[in-house]
């Protein structure tokens, strides 16, 4: 067991000291609720993308999404796009489209069965929000939603997407 602990601590030390020259890039191609195939690279070609991983059974997610829709409108000059990624299991995926239709959301809603893509972004449970730059770097990630988080997210986005002084897009 001590050997295991040393191994674990070594991993963590290497990770902490690793020279992060570049943020991780993650790619995916998912189907949307209309059956079309959507590639993250195609979305990125238009600008940075805010991915919101959610599920029909996730109440905090449903509370967060209207705020995200409003928030993205304030970043039109930076071409920020919002893509909703539903992580429902294949068993409950059919309930996504009626819910989306009843809400009248006007952005891509992608299907990520069992959250496999969310896990590539290191998310474990919805809601999970990720900002991907136009070049594919993961600039920001946050799990959970509490009332008021949208204001903190807005500040983060203003900082990250600032034309000058912020991080590179």
């Amino acid at each position: 067991m001590p050997r295991r602990i040393v191994l674990l601590l070594s991993f963590l030390l290497v990770a902490a000291l690793w020279p992060l020259h570049a943020a991780e890039t993650v790619s995916f191609r998912l189907k949307d609720i209309n059956g079309s195939s959507v590639d993250l690279a195609d979305l990125r070609a238009k600008g940075p993308v805010l991915l919101s991983f959610w599920a029909t059974y996730c109440e905090p997610c449903k509370k967060e999404i209207p705020h995200l829709i409003d928030l993205v409108k304030g970043f039109q000059s930076q071409n920020l796009q919002l893509a909703l990624v539903a992580v429902d299991s294949p068993r409950s995926q059919k309930q996504i489209k009626p819910y989306v239709n009843s809400k009248g959301w006007g952005m891509p809603v992608l299907l990520d069965a069992n959250g496999q893509t969310m896990k590539k972004f290191k998310g474990s449970n919805p809601p999970y929000t990720v900002l991907v730059s136009a070049t594919g770097e993961v600039l920001y990630a946050h799990g959970g939603y509490k009332p008021g988080d949208e204001k903190a997210l807005e500040e983060e986005l203003r900082h990250i997407l600032a034309p000058a002084g912020g991080k590179e897009q």
Binding site: F11, L12, V14, L20, A23, E24, K122, S124
Partner: peptide, 10 residues
């Protein structure tokens, strides 16, 4: 290209 490492420890 450039090597990058990322991870999640629980």
């Amino acid at each position: 290209g450039e090597l990058s490492l990322s991870g999640l420890n629980t």
